[in-house]
Amino acid sequence: MTNEQHSTPPALPDVGSLVRDRWNGRIGVVMDRVSGRVALRPQGGGVEWFALPEDLEAVALSEGLSEPVREANARSRGGRR
C-alpha cells in the first residue's frame, strides 16, 4: 500500500466558518456539509455554491470584511471588479 491509500480526507470546516474557495477565489460562510462537500454562501447573502474541502482555506475576519465591499463596488460598476 502507498501513502496515498492511508491519507486522511481533509477536515470539513465548521458551519459558520469563513473560508476562501481557492478554486474560484470567492470568500463564503460555511452553511452546511453534505456528502463530503461544503455549501458556502457569500457573507452578505446570495446564492450558495458547493466546494470540496481540499479547496478551502480559513480566512481572517478582517479579510472577510472587505469582500462585501468589493462585491458592492463591482455591482456599482456593472459587475466589473
Rank of each mutant, 00 (worst) to 15 (best):
T2S: 15
E4I: 09
E4R: 13
Q5C: 05
H6F: 12
H6N: 10
S7C: 01
T8W: 00
P10E: 07
A11R: 10
L12P: 04
P13K: 02
P13Y: 03
P13V: 01
D14L: 10
V15N: 01
V15T: 12
G16N: 07
G16C: 02
D21S: 12
D21G: 13
R22N: 13
R22V: 13
W23V: 07
W23D: 14
N24F: 04
N24K: 07
G25A: 12
R26C: 13
R26G: 09
R26D: 13
V29C: 07
V30F: 05
M31S: 07
M31I: 11
M31W: 05
D32Y: 00
R33E: 13
V34M: 09
S35A: 15
G36M: 02
G36Q: 08
V38D: 04
V38R: 03
V38F: 04
A39T: 03
A39K: 10
A39N: 06
L40T: 06
R41P: 05
P42S: 05
G44D: 15
G46T: 04
V47M: 14
E48H: 11
E48M: 13
W49H: 14
W49Y: 08
W49F: 12
A51L: 02
E54A: 15
D55I: 04
L56Q: 04
E57I: 11
E57A: 15
V59S: 00
A60Q: 10
A60P: 02
L61T: 13
S62W: 00
S62I: 11
S62C: 00
S66D: 08
E67P: 00
P68K: 01
E71A: 14
A72Y: 05
A72D: 02
N73V: 12
A74H: 01
R75Y: 04
S76Q: 09
R77N: 00
G79V: 05
G79E: 03
G79W: 02
R80T: 03
R80E: 00
R80I: 04
R80A: 12
